[in-house]
């Protein structure tokens, strides 16, 4: 019993002190982030390979992506990273109300990011700028498989220079198929990132509920700190995705 009496409050029995408990958690979350970086790296390697081999496909396909929406999403994610970093400060200082506000702003930003993303995806499904295997894709290898209405569609619609006006069906089949692969990579990369944003939203909601119950304070802020680290990683990945996908001139 005496050992229990001396045990610091809020520290699990297998840890000697609060700082040991905190350090263990921190090591754990950093190790998890390492696996996350490697998880995404496979898709980045696919991107690099493909861009190395077919730079002209990337230049052409990138015109279909809305740079303004991409930039807006970058700013939204950066703002959310700032508010969660501020939230960690709030938690360390025991500013519960400010932490609640910052968690809510972060959640709203995350939801805004997903809504903008949904708008972009919706537009692509409407225009048929999808991976080649999709039913409505305009980038199928055989032009006869492309929806006849879509096939007549001129490709100048999203071209800022307005110089290229070939119909989808008149594109070189090999080139059209490669455009489909670009969109496969685009949807995999942004989709996997989007799933991470959704998981982040669940975690942030959990933090919000716990904070409303008054569970966080200067001695117990580890969960806020660790989830903030995860959220920053999601931001980091988008920082690289944005120029790689949207800004190819």
């Amino acid at each position: 019993m005496s050992a229990h009496d001396n045990h610091p409050e809020g520290v699990a029995h297998h840890f000697e002190s609060a700082s040991q408990q905190f350090d263990s958690g921190k090591l754990g979350i950093w190790t998890f982030l390492l696996t996350e970086v490697l998880f995404f790296s496979a898709l980045f390697v696919a991107y690099t390979m493909y861009r190395n081999n077919y730079p002209e496909v990337f230049q052409f396909a990138s015109q279909y992506l809305d740079t303004n929406l991409g930039a807006l999403n970058t700013l939204v994610l950066l703002l959310s990273s700032f508010t969660i970093a501020w939230g960690v400060r709030n938690a360390m200082l025991g500013e519960t109300k400010k932490l609640t506000i910052n968690l809510i702003i972060t959640l709203v930003c995350a939801a805004g990011f997903m809504m903008i993303k949904a708008e972009e995806y919706g537009h692509k499904f409407h225009e048929g700028t999808l991976w080649g295997g999709h039913e409505h894709s305009i980038f199928k290898l055989d032009a006869n498989d492309v929806d006849p209405h879509m096939a007549e569609h001129s490709l100048a619609f999203n071209n800022p220079d307005g110089e290229f006006t070939a119909a989808v069906k008149d594109l070189d089949p090999e080139f059209r198929q490669k455009l489909g692969i670009f969109f496969g990579i685009y949807f995999c990369l942004t989709g996997l990132h989007g799933i991470h944003v959704l998981i982040g939203m669940i975690l942030l909601s959990w933090l919000l509920i716990r904070n409303l119950r008054g569970e966080f304070g200067p001695k117990n802020f580890a969960a806020v700190d660790f989830i903030a680290l995860y959220w920053h990683l999601v931001d980091l990945i988008w920082i690289f995705l944005f120029p790689l996908l949207y800004l190819i001139s």
Binding site: S17, S19, F82, A85, W86, R89, M92, F221
Partner: peptide
């Protein structure tokens, strides 16, 4: 060492 956990960043730096 028992009390000191983590590092608090000033708000001005975050901004």
């Amino acid at each position: 060492s028992e009390e000191h956990i983590g590092h608090i960043l000033p708000l001005s730096l975050l901004l």
